[in-house]
């Protein structure tokens, strides 16, 4: 009767909370839609131009599209407790807030992996369809390094969104900051290193996580790039997640 709430149950509840609001449900639908459209376009190109694309290429296209909106789900999962003030109920049902936050984190990561699985399925379907249409057998070539890199970048994006959300505890702010940091910051940093400060080009890969992640996805890793991957992950994920969790466990819930 008064046993502690099992962690698995908290995860189940967080999953439910992610899809039982319009925002959450539509983000998933739009992500699935975008990925399907990307696959459709790739297939059409393959069929009309009669070129063979490997499974690997379909998967890459999927990875870029599915990763765009996924972190927003991670953001909403955290910020809704403040924006919609449901935290007042959530944290009275489970006052050990760190457990709730951990459950949200695990839920986000599981969802990211689920989307990777889904991307596999969609890419496979696209691969089969275009092969059938071109009357050839499908090319199933895929590098395992890439699959792992895909898993890593999707997980990173989700955790990054989560970290920003935990720091800001504000939905619009977190979403804006996420997109700025992911899509606009690299452009600014690149511009700086190209135009204003040449030496910055050496520093940029140690700050801009898109640089080492780009190498990771293209399997161009060496010792230095690994170092950059670890450093940027520490800066953009480990540090903010730690600070964010500290903030959530200490904040007054109103």
């Amino acid at each position: 009767m008064s046993d502690a709430i099992p962690f698995a149950r908290l995860i189940k509840v967080e999953f439910r909370k992610m899809i039982n609001t319009r925002a959450g449900l539509w983000l998933l639908i739009v992500t699935a839609g975008l990925t399907s459209v990307a696959m459709l376009i790739t297939s059409i190109v393959s069929i009309t131009q009669d070129v063979e694309f490997s499974f690997d290429l379909y998967l890459r296209t999927c990875a870029y599209t599915s990763g765009i909106l996924l972190p927003v789900l991670g953001i909403i999962l955290v910020t809704q407790e403040w924006g919609q003030r449901t935290g007042m109920v959530t944290f009275t049902l489970e006052p050990r807030r760190a457990r709730v936050v951990a459950a949200k984190l695990v839920t986000g990561v599981l969802l990211a992996w689920l989307v990777v699985l889904l991307a596999f399925a969609v890419a496979a379907i696209a691969n089969v369809i275009s092969a059938l249409a071109r009357g050839t057998s499908a090319n199933w070539e895929v590098s395992w390094q890439f699959v792992l890199a895909f898993l890593f970048t999707q997980t990173f994006a989700m955790l990054f969104g989560f970290a920003i959300a935990a720091l800001l505890l504000n939905t619009p702010g977190a979403i804006v900051l996420f997109f700025v940091a992911t899509f606009i910051l690299p452009i600014i940093l690149t511009t700086v290193s190209l135009v204003a400060w040449r030496q910055f080009a050496d520093i940029q890969p140690w700050l801009d996580f898109t640089v080492p992640q780009g190498h990771l996805l293209l399997d161009e890793m060496d010792g230095k790039v690994w170092g950059q991957l670890v450093t940027t992950t520490l800066i953009w994920v480990v540090l903010p997640v730690t600070l964010g969790v500290m903030r959530i466990t200490r904040a007054e819930v109103k």
């Binding site: 502690a4 925002a23 003030r85 449901t86 009275t92 049902l93 006052p95």
Partner: peptide, 22 residues
């Protein structure tokens, strides 16, 4: 905070408007 599953012991209503509108 030390109650293992507090809602089975204590029913709480602090703010009726603090619910997810959606």
């Amino acid at each position: 905070a030390d109650l293992p599953n507090p809602a089975r012991k204590v029913g709480v209503l602090l703010d009726a408007s603090a619910q997810h509108n959606g």
